[in-house]
Design a binder for these strands. Sequence first.
DNA 1: ATGCCTGCCCAACCGATCGTTGTGGCTCGC
DNA 2: GCGAGCCACAACGATCGGTTGGGCAGGCAT
Lengths: 317, 317
Amino acid sequence: MDTEAVRSFVRAAELGQFQHAADELGVTQQAVSKRIAALERELEVRLFTRTARGVELTLDGQAFLPHARSIVAGVDRAVTAVRPGSRALRIDVLGLRSAQAVVLHDYWRSHPETDLDVVTLKVDDPHVAAAAVQAGDIDASFRTVTDPATLPRDVQMIHAFDSPLELLVGPRHPLASARTLTPPQLRKLRIWVPGIVPRSEWSEFYDQLATAFDLRIDAAGPNFGNEVLLDALADSADVATLVGARDRYIWPTNHDLRRIPIVNPTLAYPISLMLPRTNPHPGLRAVISHFASLTPLPETTWLPSWATTPRRSAGQT
Amino acid sequence: MDTEAVRSFVRAAELGQFQHAADELGVTQQAVSKRIAALERELEVRLFTRTARGVELTLDGQAFLPHARSIVAGVDRAVTAVRPGSRALRIDVLGLRSAQAVVLHDYWRSHPETDLDVVTLKVDDPHVAAAAVQAGDIDASFRTVTDPATLPRDVQMIHAFDSPLELLVGPRHPLASARTLTPPQLRKLRIWVPGIVPRSEWSEFYDQLATAFDLRIDAAGPNFGNEVLLDALADSADVATLVGARDRYIWPTNHDLRRIPIVNPTLAYPISLMLPRTNPHPGLRAVISHFASLTPLPETTWLPSWATTPRRSAGQT
DNA sequence: ATGCCTGCCCAACCGATCGTTGTGGCTCGC
DNA sequence: GCGAGCCACAACGATCGGTTGGGCAGGCAT
């Protein structure tokens, strides 16, 4: 099916005449006629009744019209999603199940008219993401560099929101039935956080966290994916892991894993957004102000060192 | 843009290889390669990075993918909407702003997965609609024949719901500030209901209504469309009209029209649904049971003679 | 009633495109 | 270093898509 034919169908249906639709589309009336005929042949159904004054939709044509509109709209959105210059807002997240993606999804649900594309750079280094922001390949990225001085001149990093941590344990774990936990209760616990890139901001975060509360966080070991990790948790009586409260996880029901909030103090990972310092995408403003509507964390929340310097509010661009 | 190319893109993105996508689509790998190349040429953007083990989405490809999925889904829905035999549920309504359409829209919002097509037969005669139901051109129609004996053998008519009437008046009308009205208050009022087809069920409805409550309902006169009617109402100090409580009207804000419910008794038009007696579309069942969830009218509601015989419940098919 | 005008379809032509087969280049793993 | 796997390029036939030109039918004015 040719989307130009669908577009012709929609315009012809709206205008009631092939001729007008043809003029508007910059082709001859015969071309529109052939396009419609091709559609009708493909669908094995008559879409218009031809009259002397133009055309009129058949019942099948009426039924087809809204779907045709949706196809055309989809094509237009698809084109604007990649058209350089005036393209849809494109934001890089670490993973589609991360808290960042969840918050973005929240935003989109409350602003469904936004043309928003969520992508994932297949790289670990936040500086690569910063370069992609600078180059305009993406409009913003939920990445963090612990030293803002290492950012390109044209890229700024603002605080987006803080993601509180929860302990994820299997049913046989001694803490499995706790309603909440405090950091001291996590001491000497085997906490396994695989897949952390050495010398990344995440490894530094866990280092600081382990030091601050005397925790035993095992960040080494290869990452075989979430399924393997969740399997291991479900079977184990002593291994736990940390996840963001907003992170989305799929666990088969038989896994029966529990998420346990950590309080007094709450432990949180500060999520930042990198965006161009000049001419950011106009749609970013609304996304950023959406962060402010997230429920704030308690004043006593623990944060890593690079976030304890006076935090900038999230309202600015 | 060719939707088969879009489909190929989606499958290639999901499978990570042109070869597999080609096998699945029943074409050669080269064909898929050319389709993707054509897409990339049209979008002026690279969608995949080619590797030795297959292909991987670029950022643009990632941004394009969800839109591509939506296009493919739209095409599939469009095809099923008209494919004879297994096509989407297709229901005829009198107009897209009628209470029938509003109720259908309500239904669809609570069952968004339903493939529902709302069409409008461009005819007045309900028997033509009945014939269309019998022929299978439509699955059901919100039409009423006052004498069920005139229906084709294979078509039945069931009670859908009752549509209560409201008085629609302009700001200068003496009743403009009333919160509710009773039928006796409408006596001697100039009620203008243009566009009623003579000897139709609507003309009979208004005849009975006028007789029952001694009303002055002017159903004559040509119908120049809702805009003209609403304009007239807005300017007039003595003309009013009747609308269904659920009817959707667009009135410019400067019109400042008011809808005033009529009570004691409520006046209602009984809306019926015609559907095949044998093998109705399976999706109809849920629509019909949705009618039961509408707020019922008071027992004292006035209805025309053909509806005062014991009403059948709406649950049956 | 007679033309005229409008709007659609059909026919013929031509260039572009699609899909196929055949081939070559590239990378990864053994 | 060599084969396997995968993608791109080339060439070819069939098809498609658009254009021009001509014809037909219905509505409207004279």
